[in-house]
Structure formats: structure tokens, C-alpha cells
Design a protein around this nucleic acid. Sequence first.
DNA 1: GTAGTCAGATTGTCCGGACATTCAGATTGA
DNA 2: TCAATCTGAATGTCCGGACAATCTGACTAC
Lengths: 254, 254
Amino acid sequence: MPKPEVDPTVQLELSVDRSSPVPLYFQLSQQLEAAIEHGTLTPGSLLGNEIELAARLGLSRPTVRQAIQSLVDKGLLVRRRGVGTQVVHSQVKRPLELSSLYDDLEAAGQRPATKVLVNTVVPASAEVAAALGVAEDSDVHRVERLRLAHGEPMAYLCNFLPPGLIDLDTGQLEATGLYRLMRAAGITLHSARQSIGARAATPAEAERLAEEAGAPLLTMQRVTFDDTGRAVEYGTHTYRPTRYSFEFQLLVRT
Amino acid sequence: MPKPEVDPTVQLELSVDRSSPVPLYFQLSQQLEAAIEHGTLTPGSLLGNEIELAARLGLSRPTVRQAIQSLVDKGLLVRRRGVGTQVVHSQVKRPLELSSLYDDLEAAGQRPATKVLVNTVVPASAEVAAALGVAEDSDVHRVERLRLAHGEPMAYLCNFLPPGLIDLDTGQLEATGLYRLMRAAGITLHSARQSIGARAATPAEAERLAEEAGAPLLTMQRVTFDDTGRAVEYGTHTYRPTRYSFEFQLLVRT
DNA sequence: GTAGTCAGATTGTCCGGACATTCAGATTGA
DNA sequence: TCAATCTGAATGTCCGGACAATCTGACTAC
């Protein structure tokens, strides 16, 4: 039987700045998250009860609860009635994000490069129109890109965007990722519907990715929605599985 | 320029039962979710302001806010300061879950079948020990299963579990999924770290899945954690990509 | 010694109110 | 006509309190 792993309550130096425009609960949650990230709050350690914590910080209990709740939602803390709130002891890094291949590669120190193959406006096919929620044959942007790392092709990305949202400059597309451009254009990315599969490379695909025909490819299709629920991007991507795989953290929703 | 899409406020029949042990905010959120699912609340429609809604239901505003917030977290609603709360207009079905292959197949009406190939206890390899956070060479359960749909093999699943958590009955494993067994054993699944990739099938893998050697396979590795952050399962799965792909919904965390 | 019971601690739920912040549209001014 | 300003409406933040539900550990009774 495993030991109950009782850890003493940790005393932290926490403080909030009431003159700051940053919400108090957010200030607190950031400090707590930093303490967890930094290791000051060790996995399994108790956080101390909410009421005492609120009193120590000069905050109300709802405010403290809001801060804690946001970290629970992120999967960093666990609350147990009658027991307390403790830090989860696992290698939870980041809960999960709308991953951007560009950012992923950059974070891995791979110095990604992008080659824009196509950047034009085309009439929407039935598939694209359905994904983006626009009329068939209406104009949409079409962008085809080849993403490279260390000079080697890694992925072939084909994206469609509804018109009027953003002007796609080829130079900017080669310098950064599509998601960054969209965010910079004031589009708030909210959710995405993804499908990940695999198949054998066609001769044309193999040629583009410097693979051989019939080689396994990792495929991903994605429709991205902004905060109003409007589809803002549809993409069909193929990846070289020897160079890239999808890694992410899932949280169970109850 | 797209039309602002003004939709009239929808009047719903909502009610709460104060004698029920179900929390009031949960009753409300369920009714709202049902209305969205059912189409009574159409995408883009406004929900009516929180204060008036609270008054109509005889609830306080924080309670109503808690109900709405839970649906916002699920990605079903969007709040806009100064405007109101509206239903997202997109084909958002399920935010995202810790998908279980068994449940996925059953939901698709595929009548899944499982064949347990191996159900034994083995010493943990370095890889398994690292994933589960146990000592190398310590005992772990090893389960190998073949999952079939319509008599055709779909996936080969190899899982490792730490000892003492659950007793793995081969009959039960063939009748349902591993996750259901774990939940039934009182284990609260909390999060998982996944990696999805692809590769060519080895001759042995091809044989198991009735594919040809060199055929593309979809691979998934997963470590699952319970609500205390302890690893409760590590699995290495291979799927036939012609029969299965991963579909899920991502939410952007801010 | 063992099982059941009880009390304390802690989070869960809910209330009612107050003020700040932001958005959209109407008004006003140049 | 167009831009800047104002106003109303709605959500965002925060407070202080009250009671309920649940878990842990200690106590008690057998």
C-alpha cells in the first residue's frame, strides 16, 4: 500500500497589487502557477486552506477560489473536500493548446523555414465550402506551403481562408506562421476541429516531401474557429512521420 | 463586410428544483446545454442578460454566472462584455475528451469486439518504468489486445498498468474497454499525455492487423494520470489508418 | 483489538450587493 | 458628411457572509 504522501503546508510569499489593472485573482493564479513551475510548490504539497489564504492576502474567499479554480482547470491543482488543495504530482507541462507547427518547431530549437508554393484566390470546392461555411464557388484564399527544418522538408501545408479576414503577404508567410498572422490581424482563435490519420504517400506527395511513393505519411485536417464560432481557416496537412509527431496533453472534462 | 447577425433574445422555459441535491448552477447549465443541443437555442442567438435571467429563475447572479461559465468552458457559449452571451455558431459537438477507442467505436455503431492476446505480469522495462513512474524491473500488468469491428481487425493495443490498482479479468476486458474498467474500479481519470505518429508496419504488425508489411500504420502512445497525478496506464497502440483516425475538438486556453 | 461514532477541518454551494470595464449605437460637433 | 463624444446595457471583478457536504483522524463502545 502506498504511503499517503502527507506533505506539510507550504508557506509562500504571495502578494497582490491592488493598484494594478490586472485582476486580483489573476495575479494570484499567476504567482501560484509560477511557484509550481519553479518548484517552490512541490507536487503533492497542500496549498493551505482558502479562508486563511484569503485573510493573509487581504482578499475575499471568492477571489482566492477563482484563482485556484483557474489552476484546477489547467490541471495543475486538485481540490478535495475536507482535505484541501494540492499540487498534482505528475509531469504535467502544458494542458494542451491549439498547436502551431511553426511554434512547435521554434520551441524545439529547429529554426523552421517556410517556402510558399501557392498564394492565390480560388473558387471554393464543395469540401472547402462546407468546412468554412461559405457558398460553393465563392472566392477563398488558397495557400500552399512547404515547411522545412534544417533544410529538410517536414510538412506540406495546404490552407484555405475566407476572404476579407486577412491579407496574406507571401513574405510574412515565409517569416512566421499562419496563426501568428491571424492573431496579429486581431482574430481571436477559439477552437478547432481536428482529424489525424495516416496513409501512403502518392507520387506527387512523395516528391514534395523527398520521400518515396508509398511511404507512410501523417495527415491532419483542421477547421479553426474564432471566438464568434466562425470558421476562419481550413487546412489539409501532410507530415513526414519520421520528422514529426503530434504530442499533447488531454484533460478529462466532467 | 459580413452582417452583424443580430438574433433576437430567445425565451426559454427554464426551471430549477431547489429540493434536488443537484446543484442549482448545474441544473441550469444542463438545461441550457440541452437547449443548445436540441436546437432551441440557435447558434448566434443571445441568451438574455444575466441579471434578468437570475431574477426570472429566482437565483442569484453568481449562480447563473457559474452555470454560464461552465458552458463557456465547454466552448458552447461566448460572452462579450457590453453585448451579452451568445451561442457559438459552429459545428461544435464535443469539446474534447480522453477518447476511448471502445467508446468511439460503440458510438459509431460498430459493435466493437476485443480479443485479449496477453494478460500477464511482467517486470517493467526502462521505457515502461519511466512512463509509469515505478522502479525498473518491478512488476507491472501487461495487456495486449486486438480490437475488431465487423470482424475486421482495427487496432492492436498494448497496455501497461501499475500493480494493485485493478485486477484485470480477461473476460471483462473482452466485454468492455479498459477505461471503463478503471472507472468502475473507482479510479478517476484526469489527464493524459499523448503522442500520435505514423510509421510503416513491420511484418509482425502487419500479420496482426491483416495488413501488408510496409503499409502505413497510425500509432499512439499514451500515459494516463488519475486525479492525484499518478500514472495509472501506459499504452502503445497501432491503428489501421484505413479504418480509424483521431477526431477531436481543441479549445484555446488563454 | 476492532468497529462504529463523533468532531474538526476544508471545500462546495449560494446569496445579495457594489463598482469597474467594455461595447454598440445614438447624439453631437466640425 | 464624417468623426468624436456621450449614454445605456451588459459582462467583469470583488466583497462578506451563511450553510451544506465530505473527508480525516481521534474517540468510544463492544
